[in-house]
Amino acid sequence: MIQENIKLVEENIKKACEKVGRDVNEVTLIAVSKTKPYTAIEEALPTGVKDYGENKVQELCDKYEILPKDIKWHMIGHLQRNKVKYLVGKASLIHSVDSIRLAEQIEKEYAKADEIANILIEVNMAQEESKFGITSEETEQLVREIAKFPHIRIKGLMTIAPYTDNPESNRVYFRNMKKLSVDIENKNIDNVSMSVLSMGMTGDYQVAVEEGATLVRVGTGIFGERNYNI
C-alpha cells in the first residue's frame, strides 16, 4: 500500500508541475515517517524515495542507526536547543529554525564537529498562534543575522499552512511564501540561498507545487493515519 501511495503522490506532483509549466525534477517528495516504524520506510525505499522527515530528534536518530546511510533525513519538527547536538552528522536539512538563539546553538554544535548545518527559516505565514515560526516581516532580519554564522548555510524557507479541508484556501500563503523567498534572494545576502521552499503537506501539496514549492512533506498520504498513543 505504501508503494502505491507514493506512486499516486508522485503522479499528483507531476500533474501539478505540468499545470503550471514546471519541471517535475524541481520538486522533491519528503515522506514524513514520524511515529511510523522503520519497517514502513523499508517498504517505501524500493520506490526510490530517499528523503524522509521526522518531527522528533530521538526518532530521527533511532531510525538513522537502523536504516541505510544514503537516506536524507529532514528535521521538520520544532527543535529544542538542547537536542541540536544529536542532529550533527545525521540531518541533511533542518527545516524549523525560527530564532537567533536556536541558530546560535546550531552554530556552536556544528562548529565543534567542524560540520556545516543546512537549514531553512520557518515562517508562520498564516500567523497562527498554535504554530511556531516567525512573521514574514521578521524574516529578512533573521536571515541577515544567521547568515553571519560560518557553520550554517541558509538554503531557503519553510512554512506549515493551516489545516484545512479546502486546499485552495492555502494558496495565498504559498504564493506569499514564494514572493518572500524571491524578495530575499534579490537582496543577494552573502551565505544565503533561497533555492529551497518547503511547503505543502498531504492535504494541499498540489497547490503548494503550483505556487513554487521545491520540497513537499507528505505523511498521512503515504503511510496512512498516525497513532499518537504509541
Rank of each mutant, 00 (worst) to 15 (best):
T35A: 01
I2G: 08
V49Y: 01
M194W: 02
E107I: 01
T35W: 08
E140R: 10
Y64H: 15
Y38Q: 12
V218H: 09
I66T: 12
K14N: 13
D114V: 05
K90I: 15
I106T: 06
G89P: 04
T135E: 05
G221L: 10
I71F: 02
Y52S: 09
K34D: 09
N118R: 12
V216T: 06
S33N: 06
M199F: 02
S92F: 15
E211W: 06
Y228N: 03
T214Y: 01
K19I: 09
K15R: 14
K7N: 14
E115D: 13
G203I: 02
T39R: 11
S130N: 14
N227Q: 11
T159W: 00
N170D: 09
D190N: 14
K108W: 06
N229L: 13
H151N: 15
A208I: 08
L45S: 04
T159A: 10
E4S: 14
E128D: 11
D98T: 03
K108L: 13
N124L: 08
D98N: 13
A44K: 02
K69Q: 14
K131E: 07
P46I: 03
F223K: 09
L197Y: 01
Q105C: 11
V49F: 01
Q141K: 15
V182W: 00
A44S: 11
K108V: 00
K63L: 05
P68S: 08
L102T: 04
I2W: 02
I6V: 13
N12Y: 11
K179N: 12
V207R: 02
W73C: 05
S181T: 05
I71T: 05
V123M: 06
A16F: 09
Y52M: 05
E11R: 13
H95G: 02
S33K: 00
A117V: 10
E4T: 13
V182G: 02
D204K: 07
A113S: 15
A161H: 03
I116P: 01
L8Y: 12
S33R: 00
V216N: 03
I146W: 01
Y205W: 09
L180P: 06
Y205T: 03
L142M: 14
Q3K: 14
E185V: 00
F174P: 05
L60Q: 10
M194F: 01
V20T: 13
I222V: 13
L79R: 09
I76M: 07
L102G: 05
R175Y: 11
Q3C: 11
K63I: 07
S96Y: 11
W73N: 07
M1R: 12
I100D: 00
V97S: 04
Y163L: 15
C17L: 09
M125H: 04
V196N: 08
Q80F: 11
E104H: 03
F174K: 04
E115Q: 15
N229F: 14
L93W: 05
D70W: 02
Y173P: 04
L120W: 09
N118V: 03
E210S: 05
I160S: 03
E54C: 04
C61H: 04
M201R: 10
T135P: 03
R175L: 12
L157P: 04
M199T: 05
I41C: 04
W73D: 07
G89T: 08
L45D: 03
E168V: 10
K85L: 04
L197M: 14
K56T: 01
I134M: 07
L87W: 11
Y163R: 13
H151T: 06
G21T: 10
N176I: 00
A31D: 08
K85A: 12
